[in-house]
């Protein structure tokens, strides 16, 4: 879903001057679910639910950016009324407005579209959008990327440091694989997502907490056009893998075979390629593993690094 073009929409709100603001996106979610060790069932006790560490960090970063840019902070959440106490607390910490789009179970792309629409409808002109890196209930961390697309902004995701170089320009550090870091100079407006360790959310002053009321939250209907994913029947779990039965005469041999220890294997390799070729190599590798269809146009015949290794390596097990 794309945000409607402001010039074509007939909306009374267009008569209102846009408000410049830093936007913090937060999700109310289960923080400490009880997992039954026997059947893996998850009890998402709503009393132990709230905003994840990274979402709280996102709000603190937004509050600091708001001060640096002299603009208020607007918190936006897509979810049910369970989120309201958390949003009320954000209002008490210094967030100027809290908007909740009232719908549950929307997939990432829809969530991003709803946030973009809510900002547009409320004439909120985002100087920066700060999100947590991913939600703690098995989220994929893709909302910020979809949101950047919806808003037509640059994105820098999974940040572990963020500071203002000069108003309108940020110096951010991203975590990369292999314990490496990437330092990026980012021009605003942009969408960023931050890890929980980036900042601790300040505590709400008592007086502000007493003054804040659930009625202060702006609730926007999620709308009937929202495409909802079917509700999950069971809690989120990583997909299971089928592993061939281990071979071996003795139990110890079979256990060793199962662990993969003492078996010759291809060590992981790092290859450096220009972005386009790197993307192609990733797609090709996914095709080798069977995750994507290799009948795609543009599939190269060039063997992928892993394919090369795999062709002369015996299967790991068996």
């Amino acid at each position: 879903m794309s945000a409607p073009d402001p010039s074509t929409t007939v909306d009374p709100s267009t008569t209102v001057r846009p408000t410049r603001a830093v936007v913090a996106c937060v999700k109310f979610t289960t923080i400490l679910p009880e997992v039954d060790p026997l059947d893996g069932g998850v009890d998402p006790d709503v009393r132990r639910a709230g905003l994840s560490e990274s979402d709280l960090a996102a709000v603190e970063v937004a509050l600091r950016l708001g001060v640096d840019h002299g603009v208020p902070v607007v918190a936006v959440s897509v979810g049910g009324a369970d989120a309201d106490p958390s949003l009320v607390e954000l209002l008490a910490t210094g967030v100027a407005r809290a908007v909740r789009v009232d719908t549950e179970g929307a997939p990432s792309a829809t969530v991003a579209g709803l946030i973009a629409s809510a900002l547009h409808d409320r004439r909120i002109d985002a100087v920066a959008v700060v999100c947590g890196d991913y939600s703690s209930d098995g989220g994929s961390g893709s909302v910020p990327a979809f949101l950047a697309h919806e808003l037509g902004m640059a994105q820098a995701l999974g940040l572990i440091e963020i500071e203002v170089e000069v108003p309108g320009s940020l110096r951010v550090v991203r975590r990369l694989d292999g314990a490496r870091r990437e330092v990026v100079s980012l021009q605003l407006p942009a969408v960023v997502s931050v890890e929980g360790g980036v900042a601790d959310l300040r505590r709400a002053p008592l007086a502000a907490l007493l003054a804040a009321r659930p009625g202060d939250i702006e609730v926007v209907p999620g709308g009937s056009t929202v495409h909802l994913e079917p509700a999950r029947q069971r809690p989120w779990r990583p997909r299971s893998r089928v592993v061939p039965a281990p071979q071996g005469e003795h139990a110890l041999d079979r256990i060793v075979a199962l662990t993969g220890a003492l078996v010759e294997r291809t060590p992981p390799r790092t290859i450096e390629l220009p972005p386009a070729e790197a993307a192609q190599a990733i797609l090709d590798q996914l095709a080798v593993w069977g995750y994507v269809d290799d009948e795609r146009p543009g599939t190269t015949d060039a063997p992928t690094p892993d394919a090369v290794e795999r062709s002369d390596t015996p299967p790991l097990l068996g």
Binding site: R202, R203, A204, P205, L206, A207, A208, L209, L210
Partner: peptide, 9 residues
């Protein structure tokens, strides 16, 4: 007095 900022009531 509470442990919150501005925490007297």
């Amino acid at each position: 007095r509470t442990d919150r900022p501005d925490g007297d009531l």
